[in-house]
Amino acid sequence: MDKKWMIYGANGYTGELIARRAIEQGLTPILAGRTEAKVQPLAKELGLDYQIFSLDDAESIAAQIGDCTLVLHAAGPFIYTARPMMEACLRSRTHYLDITGEIPVFETGAALGEKAAKAEIMIMPGTGFDVVPTDCMAVFLKGQLPDATHLQLAFASQGTRFSRGTAMTMAENLGESSAVRQNGKITKVPIGHKSMTVEFADDFKRFVMTIPWGDVSTAYYSSGIPNIETYTAVHPSTYRYVKLQKYFGWLLRLPFVKARAKKRVLSGPAGPSAAQRKSGRSLVWGRVTNDKGETRTARSIMPEGYALTAITSVMIAERVLNGQAKPGFQTPAKAYGPDLLLEVEGAVRELMD
């Protein structure tokens, strides 16, 4: 496989995991990022070429990626960085992947879908834990109940923690509302406006609340189900504080509050340790319902989320490099089917009813 491809943001926590996974799979990506002092040491260690450039404008980015078949974009917050990279990929006719979980980024990709089809490239945000396992669950459940009108998806992690990049995105979104899809349209709702208890595994039940997970966008394009809610596991005491956000959300949105939160994130660990990634696991639960009240429920267990992101991102990159890329905007399960997740070692899925 001699096609050139690039990991942008390779010096970040998840970007580095992806780069190391690529090497394990016999691939030789070009590593790229904004700062040479951060990118060059990793490139030297892995024996890879590297490029340094910023994401100031699409035209200058396109000049940097012009000879690449594929860019796997791993530098967030994607709400700021994804569009210029997508626009550059359209100019250079380069396939685009990223690891976002941000609804606006998926919607941006969808809006550029027609242009991508004309340029004969694929735009696929969300090639990691956001949103491969949940997207596969949505399409699997749609196949079990083809006339489903409502979809609920929930996820949880066990034995791990957020990476610095994920936490920075969360800090950026402090005080913001949540979202669901109602009758085909994305609708703002208060964060945590609904809650329930989910049996992710026989030995693992958790309280969950609604959040604006990427599937509010992607699961609609993948499954066509018009009503979608997404949930994450939280401690009930955390949920009580979240419910108070309607009273002090304005405070959390103030620039100095977000800046303080980001400073705290930067002072912490880059992400889960290797031991935590090895011992941790991620869990996904889903349920669809039709107008008759019939339901289908399923759940899946898989490796820890950041380890999974590296595995599935490289898995999808390999497909693209092998010519398996559908032009236009795509989601993982729409392009590669609901069993994509089951190709990951250790991933299992069961239908509960």
Rank of each mutant, 00 (worst) to 15 (best):
I225K: 05
G101N: 12
E318R: 06
A171M: 04
T69Y: 02
K194G: 14
A298P: 00
G286Q: 07
G224V: 01
P104T: 08
M170F: 09
T187I: 05
P29Q: 08
R253N: 15
V132W: 05
S195F: 11
L145M: 05
T230W: 02
Y241P: 14
F129N: 07
S279I: 10
R206L: 09
Q40G: 07
C89F: 08
A110R: 09
A325R: 01
N173K: 12
V198T: 10
T232N: 06
A119Q: 01
E102S: 03
L145D: 07
E343I: 05
R299N: 07
T28A: 14
Y241A: 14
V265E: 05
L283C: 08
A37W: 10
A233Q: 04
G346E: 01
L31T: 01
G76E: 06
V314G: 04
L153P: 04
A333V: 10
A32S: 07
T197M: 11
I228D: 09
V234Q: 04
T81E: 04
A117D: 12
N183K: 12
K115H: 09
E345I: 13
H150R: 09
Y241N: 15
W285D: 06
L27T: 05
K118H: 08
R93L: 00
L90S: 01
E343M: 08
G66Q: 10
Q276Y: 09
Q245S: 15
D2N: 15
I61N: 07
H235N: 12
A75T: 06
P84R: 04
L70Q: 07
R240Y: 03
A270T: 05
K44A: 15
P133I: 13
R161I: 13
C89Y: 06
P255E: 05
G126Q: 07
G12V: 09
F53V: 09
E294S: 14
T238Y: 08
P303W: 03
A270G: 13
A82Q: 00
V208F: 11
V105K: 09
